Simulated scan of single mutants.
Amino acid sequence: MVALPFDSSKIEELVLRFNAVMAKEGTDIPDLGGNASDDEVAATLQETDGDLSRDEITQEIESMNDEQKDGLVALFWIGRGDAEPEEWEKTKVLARQQHEGLVSRYLLGQPEAGEFLTEGLEKMLEYGVD
């Protein structure tokens, strides 16, 4: 039986954070002008220097041990369709071998990270994990 190196609820919480960050965009309009009440909506969708969401994800992922980081990347790849649940151990090894830089930076650079992590988790649960 395959075992995930983290609790599935931890992945679900992480996905919520990913989705919140991915919904935001870089600040590209320095002065919105116009109607102040309308400006608040655009401001909430723009990432600012004081926004902790991205930093929190980075800190959470980078505080994981190597096995958990490898598992997170493997889960992402399985969700994206690059591997199958039956290849879990092999995929984790491949994630370790191909690891360059921060895992958080890699995943935050993927626009559909939350979706693929969710899909990967669903596939692994269907396959049968502890």
Results as ranks from 00 to 15, higher is better:
M1I: 04
A3S: 14
L4R: 09
P5F: 02
F6C: 03
F6H: 01
D7Y: 09
S8C: 01
S8W: 00
S8K: 14
S9A: 13
K10E: 15
K10H: 08
I11Y: 04
E12S: 14
E13M: 13
E13Q: 15
V15K: 14
L16T: 12
F18Y: 14
F18G: 06
N19R: 15
N19S: 08
V21N: 04
V21C: 03
M22E: 11
M22W: 06
K24M: 09
K24T: 07
G26H: 04
G26D: 12
T27A: 13
D28N: 06
D28K: 04
I29H: 02
I29P: 01
P30E: 10
L32R: 13
G33H: 12
G33R: 13
G33E: 13
N35H: 07
S37N: 04
D38C: 02
V41N: 06
V41Q: 05
V41I: 15
V41A: 13
V41T: 10
A42F: 14
A42E: 09
A43S: 03
A43M: 03
A43H: 03
T44E: 14
L45N: 08
Q46W: 01
Q46R: 15
E47F: 00
E47K: 10
G50K: 09
L52V: 02
L52T: 04
L52A: 08
L52E: 02
S53N: 08
R54H: 11
R54I: 04
E56T: 08
I57T: 06
I57E: 04
E60Q: 14
E60N: 05
E62V: 05
S63C: 05
M64R: 07
M64F: 14
D66H: 03
Q68Y: 04
Q68K: 11
D70G: 00
F76N: 11
W77A: 13
W77M: 11
I78G: 06
G79I: 10
G81E: 10
G81C: 04
D82H: 06
A83M: 04
P85R: 08
E86L: 09
E86M: 06
E86S: 14
W88H: 01
W88L: 12
W88Q: 03
T91I: 01
T91N: 07
K92R: 15
V93N: 01
V93W: 02
L94Q: 10
L94S: 05
L94F: 07
R96V: 02
Q97K: 10
Q98Y: 00
Q98H: 02
Q98S: 08
L102V: 02
R105W: 05
Y106N: 08
Y106H: 13
Y106M: 14
L107H: 10
L107Q: 11
L107D: 09
Q110E: 15
Q110W: 07
Q110V: 03
P111K: 10
P111I: 07
A113L: 07
A113C: 11
G114K: 09
E115G: 01
F116V: 03
L117Y: 11
T118E: 15
E119K: 15
L121Q: 13
E122P: 00
K123C: 06
K123F: 05
K123L: 14
K123H: 09
M124W: 03
L125P: 00
E126Y: 02
